[in-house]
Amino acid sequence: MTVASAAAPAPNGTQPKPSRVKQVRHPNGSPWIAFGFAAPLVAYLLAFYVYPLIRSIDLSIHDYNVRAFVQGNAEFVGLEKYIDVLTSPLFPKALWNTVLFVGISIIFQYAIGLALAVFFRNTFRLSGILRALFLVPWLLPLIVSASTWSWMMNSDSGIINSFLGAFGIGQINWITSPDTALTAVIIANIWLGIPFNLVILYSGLQNIPGEVYEAASLDGANGWTTFWRVTFPLLRPVSAITILLGLVYTLKVVDIVWIMTKGGPANSSLTLAVWSYREAFGTGQPAFSPAAAIGNLLIIIALVFGLFYVRLQRREEH
């Protein structure tokens, strides 16, 4: 979890000023050579990040329909599309669904991931292999996991309903009922996120020195107290990073929801990202301008959490 800049200060600090003059003359020290190596990346970022972003802002402040899209003569409408989106009756619904989707997913992913990380901290027979197998859900293509969950949650012949049926629980229309569709995609998404949380928290646990635990056990602390008084506080920085990253990445999830429910039924599982996707690509009538407006609002939300993350990570390095 380190960023390149961490190692730079040390050698710089020891060098007296005159050597910097020498550096400029030396081929390896020349700023132009360094820039030459970075130039492809800078060009790439301009062409494939900045330009698409500018286009998406451009889409959101014009009134684009399909024809205007090809000809490029859309009418300028300023912030009208944003106002349309924010005042749409769908907006509070999509926002609330996003909060639920992200919030509940993160809480469970983190809690389960942490419990498993603690469980796997002590090595036992097969622990390495089992921990590796936990990566599987994360490595599978999303279309695979999403369609599997759809089939497992099928009302009539899904395994989940037949399992619950064995306990006398009647048929639940997981995906087809507006009451449970959001729950269904959240369950699938929690499953998908556990490996990520497990791996990061596990590596965080590995960095806690063993002596700390020994000291705790000498003081007579049991497993439960040790966890709450020692492990959990020491893991706080890693936890914060895991959760913030999880937030940023869960906010932008489209595929799992789209493949399972398409945001339906009756918008019951519509999140902001899915809404944006649906407006632009999900119907026969692409409405790129509102879609771009929703997407850009989403960027702003993601960036707020993202900047928290960057600040935390910077602090970690010092």
Partner: peptide, 15 residues
């Protein structure tokens, strides 16, 4: 890394 893919997809589509 934090920019949603759906926004990128729209930008790419337009281009």
């Amino acid at each position: 890394q934090m920019i949603p893919a759906v926004v990128m997809a729209m930008g790419f589509y337009a281009i």
